[in-house]
Write a protein that binds this DNA or RNA. Structure first.
Lengths: 197, 197
DNA sequence: CTGTTCGCATACCGTCGGTATGTGAAGGTA
DNA sequence: TACCTTCACATACCGACGGTATGCGAACAG
């Protein structure tokens, strides 16, 4: 079983990202050592540093993968709706449900800003999952459904609201009805943006 | 100049917290070593470990101090208003302005959740600065100004919205009018919660 | 004056992220 | 097919870090 160099290269890189994702999600960025990552990936540190600039760069690759998946899920559920307003609400609900995974939270919401810095984290966020929220709000402002104020601040407010809410819902003290209460409260916030008819 | 043991103890502890706060705020938790902290504080690692269980425990003491100050500022500006609704809006605006300090942000919003874990970070937050938000919303729900749904989810949504907004406002690409736009968008979100009259 | 406590200094250790260098197989060329 | 080059790693090593065990002198209690 001889493999081409391109195949081997891609296989090694995928293995490192997969193992890194699992370990970072499980115990957090700081608690995972490179030695453990390369051991479980079946390679050595030489391979890791051949593919990435360091531990933070591997984490960045992991975060980008997680964000891509989040964005795809949100977009898919939102696009299933026809009306732009229903797309917004469906997308928000999809995000809250998709981000319920504690593994996703640890990488995307807890360690992400601390490891990469908030600005770089936001750049990845806006390039993937949070982009859809901004586009949905812009479309609604264009159509006159919501007030035509700048959408960028509103996007970050709502994005932050949902990010914090999903973390709260994932904590051990959360009660069964909290998810529904949170989605209801989020709906009230969104409905409040609608222009009075 | 002989000092009592209690005085000396308190002075050393204050020095460690003060230096830790300055360095953590300036370069982030991970980039600051204990050697630098104790050197600038004029003590040794023995003193640090005599007062705190470790690096994370020192950071926790720093975070608690920052959070206490934030809570005091928000409460002071909110209590200056008489009407409960104006108290809410004044408190939110005070938080956004007080949290504009990049040093506060790095400790309270970036490193806090990653270093202590989100649940412990939230416990400190709710015990200090975020507590006032929850109490204000509860009072408004009691008075019938806003809908009588559970206030806990709404508190976390709004807290997260403001946390993310202040980080966004502090980034280098922020434009002069962004602060006003953000406060306006926040006001619209809050106004949307009011029951129709 | 004496024994005890306590606040802190000193010396040391294991582990970590990072780097410099070696190596063998894949890929190109005649 | 012989040969050289390139590349995807492996190996060996280093400085720095967080943490710990122990020693010591001054403050306190009697």
């Amino acid at each position: 079983m001889t493999r081409t160099r391109a195949e081997q290269r891609e296989a090694t890189r995928r293995a490192l990202v997969a193992v890194g994702r699992r370990l970072f999600a499980g115990r957090g960025y700081a608690a995972v050592g490179l030695a453990e990552i390369v051991r479980e990936a079946g390679v050595t540190k030489g391979a890791l540093y051949h593919h990435f600039d360091g531990k933070a760069a591997l984490f960045r690759a992991v975060l980008e993968e997680v964000q891509q998946e989040m964005g795809a899920r949100v977009a898919a559920e939102a696009d299933a709706e026809g009306d732009p307003w229903e797309q917004l609400k469906a997308g928000c609900a999809a995000f809250v449900r998709a981000a319920a995974d504690p593994d996703v939270q640890r990488i995307m919401l807890i360690d992400g800003p601390a490891v990469l810095g908030w600005n770089e984290w936001r750049a990845i966020d806006e390039a993937t999952s949070a982009r859809h929220l901004g586009e949905a709000l812009a479309a609604l402002a264009e159509a006159g459904t919501i007030a035509p104020h700048p959408v960028a601040p509103l996007t970050r407010l709502l994005s932050g609201a949902m990010n914090e809410a999903v973390l709260w819902l994932a904590q051990p003290q959360a009660r069964p009805g909290d998810l529904d209460d949170t989605l209801a409260a989020l709906s009230r916030l969104l409905d409040g943006l609608k222009v009075r008819t």
